[in-house]
């Protein structure tokens, strides 16, 4: 069995979200999001915890009923039979049966999606292979390592060969080695043409995996585009200077503010057009009586973009 086929819709996008709003009491979790996903594209939803990413994903799956707006999956309304068949959802939680084996879990979820017989068998084999769990097929889930559980959790979302996959922070709580393996699984899937929505609050994951990135904050998309576009839009040709000082944080913070920079986690951050501006900055710091520890120059990244747009760090 090959990977799920590339969708070839003639008239409809894999995913179209229009003016979606979802409120929980006084909290607006999703605040008027409009978004299109193109066929074969991996779109990252990047934002801090509580930004509304998971609510957006659950609205697409049909597990959350929006207060306003529409979601269509290959032209079908969310929660319709067509949408359910086309969607694969990999939830943030380990949504597995711990007392069943890997194979039994996959078989169960396959049956819930209407698979049976040889088709089910082939789907299970493909999933085990994709998740590199062939040799652990008979192992109880509760006995697997955290990374293996994560991989099985992902495989269970693909058992019915969907055309669009929603991955909700699939690397939460995973060690770096396992995370890398998961990246390879996603890259393989993406390489075979799967349309993917990938939510994360790790900038490097979005940078590595996604064709386009939507930066989400307080239930809104505050920037959307390829990584380079986002950085260029925010910083143009400017670079970032990061400096750490020995002096008291209050003094450093006051000085950074006077110089129009940001002081985050004891690191002073400035945006400069030319590297030659660094010398002037350091001279000014010395004049202010600040004792420099180290200084570095870097190209802006998505973290910088998020900070630039929101005034907060991504992990806040």
């Amino acid at each position: 069995m090959s990977a799920p086929a590339i969708p070839t819709p003639s008239s409809s996008l894999p995913l179209r979200i229009e003016a979606l709003i979802k409120r929980f009491g006084p909290v607006t979790a999703v605040d008027g999001i409009t978004l299109d996903l193109h066929s074969g594209e991996c779109l990252g939803l990047l934002g801090p915890n509580g930004a509304g990413k998971s609510t957006l994903i659950r609205s697409i799956v049909g597990r959350v009923v929006p207060d306003a707006g529409t979601v269509s999956v290959f032209g079908s309304a969310a929660d319709s039979a067509g949408a359910r068949a086309a969607l694969g959802w990999i939830p943030q939680e380990l949504a597995l049966y711990p007392r069943l084996t890997c194979r039994e879990n996959l078989e169960s979820f396959g049956r819930y999606h209407g698979l049976a017989g040889a088709a089910l068998g082939q789907a299970v084999v493909w999933c085990l292979d994709w998740a590199a769990l062939q040799d652990r097929a008979g192992e109880l889930v509760k006995n697997l390592s955290g990374g293996m559980k994560r991989r099985l959790n992902m495989a269970a979302g693909l058992i019915h060969q969907p055309k669009l996959v929603l991955m909700d922070e699939p690397t939460v709580g995973v060690d770096p080695q396992s995370r890398n393996r998961i990246f390879e699984m996603i890259e393989k899937l993406h390489g075979e043409g799967m349309s993917i929505i990938y939510t994360t609050h790790y900038m490097e994951e979005a940078e590595r995996l996604c064709d386009r990135i939507a930066i989400v904050d307080h239930g809104r998309i505050i920037a959307l585009g390829a990584k380079e576009e986002l950085v260029h839009t925010a910083f143009a040709t400017r670079s970032e200077v990061l400096a750490r000082f020995q002096s008291s944080p209050d003094r450093v913070g006051e000085w950074v503010e006077q110089r129009g920079g940001r002081y985050v986690d004891h690191v002073a951050q400035f945006s400069i057009e030319h590297p030659t501006e660094i010398a002037g900055l350091l001279d000014d710091a010395a004049s202010a009586g600040l004792e420099l520890v180290d200084v570095s120059l870097r190209k802006p990244n998505l973290e910088s973009v998020f900070l630039h747009l929101t005034g907060r760090e991504l992990r806040d």
């Binding site: 659950r58 799956v61 049909g62 597990r63 039979a81 359910r84 068949a85 969607l87 959802w89 939830p91 943030q92 939680e93 380990l94 949504a95 597995l96 049966y97 711990p98 979820f109 819930y112 999606h113 209407g114 269970a156 979302g157 019915h160």
Partner: peptide, 12 residues
């Protein structure tokens, strides 16, 4: 555990 959500997102 979230399994219920996953089950309800299928045909069940």
């Amino acid at each position: 555990s979230g399994t219920l959500d996953r089950v309800l997102s299928s045909r069940v």
